[in-house]
């Protein structure tokens, strides 16, 4: 049942990403290009998503547990540390360079374009290197 929920929510997420224009690198770059020919329409993606989750999360996180699992698996860290900030900055630079963030990059694999495949492969490599690097730092 949990697996069924995973695939349905993945499908709904993928439909949302493709419908909203987040899988179109030209539009995403246009959204970030406020000093040029700005395309502000993608504000409504974040707006529409947040309008939903700000309301639903508030209600559902009052529950003791989710419907199909023993507990909510939420991030426990609350401190604003260097990795959080540096990681977000690096991510922002990469996001602007091509116009893909991770969700849309996966969804856009649907279009069978080699550019997306290469992006996803190097993205996974980047994440892999980052974990090796932080593991080593944790050991030292």
């Amino acid at each position: 049942m949990k697996n069924l929920i995973a695939i349905i929510s993945g499908l709904v997420f993928g439909i949302g990403l493709a419908a909203s224009g987040m899988t179109d690198t030209t539009r995403v770059q246009g959204f970030l290009d406020i000093f040029g020919d700005w395309d502000g329409s993608l504000l409504f993606v974040l707006g529409g998503a947040l309008a939903t989750t700000l309301l639903t999360f508030r209600i559902l996180l009052k529950r003791k547990a989710p419907l199909l699992a023993e507990r909510f698996l939420l991030p426990i860290k609350t401190t604003i540390d260097k990795p959080l900030m540096i990681g977000a900055m690096i991510f922002g630079v990469g996001w602007a360079l091509v116009g893909y963030c991770p969700g849309p990059a996966f969804a856009a694999l649907a279009y069978l374009q080699w550019q997306t495949l290469l992006f996803v492969a190097t993205m996974l490599a980047g994440a892999f290197v980052a974990r090796k690097w932080s593991d080593r730092k944790a050991l030292n």
Partner: peptide, 20 residues
């Protein structure tokens, strides 16, 4: 664009409500 945003929110709601 707007409906896409709502669907993303709906998906996140489902995953949290059912699977936590």
């Amino acid at each position: 664009t707007l409906i896409g945003g709502f669907l993303i929110g709906l998906s996140a709601t489902m995953l949290l409500l059912f699977n936590g």
